[in-house]
């Protein structure tokens, strides 16, 4: 991509529009849930679920099913299992996440070897392939992404109090166990719809980095959430454009942009 006019012409292509729309929507869902995940000190949950969903993707490719659908099922089952182990006192969250991260990835590796090795399709899920988002992918991202955003907006005050003080939430009549379960499932969905954007390996970055950057700025909760979403959207947009300009991996550029914003926010906080 050598000049501005050819860069601008990219916006007329459907694949590019899909990438921008899907990327910003999935990034916004990640950034919204990310604020709660970081504050609940469950930052590794995204990584664990992404790796577990790799098993689901491999299963889908192995069985000839839509890989994101099987990934979604595996991811939801995994988050429910992690939550069950935590509630029953079988293992703390971080240990359960580590177990399912390894098990999911191991399942993926076994299924891949059974089906004759890595394919281009599998690589696109591992490292992200935002520019290959098709209509089915986009519909899934739009439908699930908007559901997540809508849920967070509608139950915003309940989720904030649940995140801050679970006992106070119980004494406010909030069905804490049910809310935690629904929220965990939403995180699982968020991970899966973001896999096409940045890939299994980098998806947790899209959850954690925008939220952590916004938290550096000492804002109110509402503003932290808005800024987190804005950072994710800017990262996705800038990442897509810069990857087109320099001809490098889009997922890498998205995470690099988010990382750069985090460094600026952290330095700003230090100097303040």
């Amino acid at each position: 991509m050598s000049d501005f006019s050819s860069l601008a012409s990219l916006f007329s292509y459907q694949f590019f529009q899909f990438a921008i729309l899907g990327g910003i929507l999935a990034g916004s869902a990640c950034a919204m849930t990310g604020v709660f995940i970081v504050l609940k000190k469950q930052s590794m949950l995204g990584d664990g679920l992404a790796h577990a969903s790799f098993g689901g993707i491999a299963l889908g490719l192995f069985l000839g099913l839509f890989p994101l659908l099987t990934a979604l099922l595996v991811s939801i089952l995994t988050v429910l299992a992690i939550s069950y182990m935590r509630r029953q006192g079988i293992a703390p969250s971080d240990a359960s996440i580590a177990v399912f991260l390894a098990l999911g990835f191991a399942t993926g590796l076994v299924l891949i070897s059974l089906s004759g090795g890595f394919s281009v399709d599998l690589f696109s899920y591992l490292f992200g392939s935002i520019l290959t988002i098709n209509t089915t992918d986009l519909m899934m991202i739009v439908l699930l992404g908007l559901s997540i955003i809508l849920f967070v907006l509608v139950f915003y005050k309940e989720i904030v109090v649940l995140c801050f003080d679970e006992n106070f939430a119980k004494l406010s009549g909030i069905p804490v166990t049910a809310f935690n379960l629904v929220f965990d499932v939403l995180v699982a969905i968020t991970i899966v719809i973001s896999i096409k954007i940045v890939g299994v390996i980098l998806v947790s970055a899209l959850i954690v980095i925008p939220a952590l950057s916004a938290l550096q700025l000492d804002l109110s909760f509402r503003r932290t959430m808005i800024v987190s979403v804005a950072i994710a959207a800017v990262s996705v947009f800038t990442g897509i454009i810069t990857s087109a300009v320099f001809g490098v991996a889009t997922s890498g550029m998205i995470v690099f942009t988010a990382g750069a914003i985090f460094v600026i926010a952290a330095v700003y906080k230090k100097l303040e």
Binding site: F164, F168, S220, R223
Partner: peptide, 11 residues
Amino acid sequence: FPLTVRELVAQ
């Protein structure tokens, strides 16, 4: 935790 006093009291 990014809560202001007003947001906390509103809980």
